[in-house]
Computed example of a mutant assay.
Amino acid sequence: MTTVPQELLLSRIRDVPDYPQPGVVFKDITPLLADPEAFTALTDALVGLCVRHGATKIVGLEARGFILGAPVAVRAGLGFVPVRKAGKLPGVTLSQGYDLEYGSAEIEVHAEDLRPGDRVMVIDDVLATGGTAGAALELIRRGGAEVAGVSVLMELGFLGGRDRLEPALRGAPLEALLTL
């Protein structure tokens, strides 16, 4: 099992108060991405999770999940599948709506990118309320693939996303490298 350098990762995540609205403390990962040592350590830790759970493809959630998932896929020798906001992908797509605290949203994936026999690991930067990840799990299953798990850089535990996501996981693992 890969050792996660939690102190290094935490030291490269910047708190931005009152962004995007007053009272919210945004967790900015751009300093982590700009530091090759920290970004490599993060990538290696996520690769370790993908290997341990037998993933054959990676789904990255728009947009920071693309930044984290693509290098993991390359390093692990796996395919990468972007899950985008509705209307951003050409061709035939599968779509899944989900509820937000302030409304609703929809995500899509190319229908042909997921196949029976695929074991898919979902990668994102943050697990907050679990809505986007839950919708991605439904898309993966509707595409005929199996969920290998969900891996995130950080989980905002105080928002309760893990509990909300639990039914959609259906026993698949959820792993957060950091829990805040």
Rank of each mutant, 00 (worst) to 15 (best):
M1R: 15
P5R: 14
E7P: 07
I13W: 01
R14N: 13
D18Q: 10
Y19P: 03
P22W: 06
K27H: 13
I29V: 14
L33N: 06
A34Q: 13
D35N: 13
E37Y: 10
A38C: 06
T40G: 14
A41K: 00
L42K: 00
L42V: 05
T43K: 15
D44R: 15
L46Q: 10
L46H: 04
V47N: 03
V47S: 06
C50T: 13
C50A: 15
G54T: 07
A55P: 04
A55G: 07
V59T: 12
V59Y: 08
E62W: 04
A63Y: 08
R64F: 10
R64K: 11
G65C: 01
F66P: 03
I67D: 00
P71H: 13
P71M: 08
V72H: 03
A76P: 08
L78C: 07
G79E: 09
F80D: 01
V81E: 05
V83N: 08
K85Q: 12
K85R: 15
A86M: 13
A86F: 13
G87C: 11
K88D: 12
G103Y: 05
S104N: 14
E108T: 05
E108P: 05
H110E: 15
E112P: 12
D113G: 14
P116S: 14
G117I: 06
R119S: 15
D125W: 03
V126N: 00
T132Y: 04
G134H: 04
A135K: 06
L139C: 12
R141A: 07
R142Y: 09
G143R: 02
V147T: 11
A148H: 04
G149H: 02
V150L: 06
V150C: 02
S151H: 10
M154K: 00
M154C: 12
L156D: 04
L159N: 00
G161N: 02
R164H: 11
L165K: 01
R170L: 15
A172Y: 03
E175W: 11
L177N: 02
